[in-house]
């Protein structure tokens, strides 16, 4: 498979009121690969992620300039509907946030917004999404119980399934394992490795080992700038920038 760009980001700047929170980011995000974004907290990783699905539109203080092309189309073009855009780009937040409804209803939230009413189709979607998120076997008998009663790891996989049910192009995860135990973490990681066959995945993590384990490419963010970007094995073995070495070897962060 040849490398095809999903996102092309050119000279992206972001400001929170008067403070610059992203400084001229340039990056090509490759289709059907896992991009790992590492860096200490406060380095701009999350803001970056949220500009990609225009979730920052909800925060009036944030202003951005630069270009973000998704499949060649600028997502900040006036004729792009952010609502439709977000259906194509799913995001899993740091803390699992199930909606206070049943497991089943959580998974079909996205599809039902698009007007899918067919029960059979929805049930199929639920099963497929939960299977892809490695959660089906644990919850298949209790789809109607409240999602609030699942464990933290299960909830996070449910959030992943909820996104898969929308059949998006891109899956973004914002430190999805920060609150999870090692077993749940490895379940999420296995799911991601499977999922990249069908989706482009962006994984923000402050756990460098996680990036090393699952990411194909890795970008290193520091102080609102992207310091280095390249294939994961290169970044982790022969990085060009001294700051990358320092971060990876755990000298700070």
């Amino acid at each position: 498979m040849t490398d095809r760009s999903k996102f092309i980001i050119e000279n992206l700047n972001a400001y929170w009121s008067d403070v610059q929170v992203l400084r001229s980011i340039n990056i090509n995000i490759v289709s059907n690969k896992i991009l790992g974004i590492i860096g200490p907290s406060g380095s701009g990783k999350t803001v970056f992620l949220r500009t990609l699905n225009r979730l920052n539109d909800l925060v009036p203080e944030i202003r951005i300039d630069g270009r973000i092309l998704l499949d060649g189309k600028d997502i900040y073009d006036p004729d792009v509907d952010p609502v439709e855009l977000r259906k194509k780009i799913g995001i899993v937040f740091a803390l699992p946030i199930p909606l206070p409804a049943s497991i089943h209803d959580n998974v079909i939230y996205g599809p039902s917004l698009s007007g899918i009413r067919n029960r059979h189709k929805l049930d199929e979607l639920v099963e497929k999404s939960l299977k892809s998120a490695f959660l089906w076997d644990e919850v298949r008998d209790r789809l109607t119980t409240s999602a609030m009663r699942l464990s933290g790891g299960q909830q996070q996989r449910l959030c992943l399934a909820r996104i898969l049910a929308m059949e998006p192009d891109v899956i973004m995860l914002d430190e999805p394992c920060s609150g999870l135990d090692p077993i749940s973490t490895s379940q999420i990681e296995s799911a991601l490795t499977e999922l990249k066959k069908e989706y482009t995945i962006i994984l923000v993590t402050n756990n460098t080992k996680q990036a090393a384990r699952v990411a194909d490419n890795t970008a290193f963010f520091l102080m609102n700038e992207m310091i280095e970007y390249g294939p994961t094995d290169v970044i982790f073995t022969v990085p060009r920038d001294k700051r990358t070495i320092d971060y990876i070897t755990g000298r700070f962060g």
């Binding site: 439709e84 977000r86 946030i97 917004l113």
Partner: peptide, 25 residues
């Protein structure tokens, strides 16, 4: 607020978010 954020991130419009998430809760 996180419920609203989840709803928006799943492609809901403002009214869908109000109607399906905010008001029921």
């Amino acid at each position: 607020y996180s419920y609203r954020e989840v709803s928006f991130s799943l492609g809901a419009t403002l009214w869908q978010t109000v109607y399906k998430v905010v008001l029921p809760n």
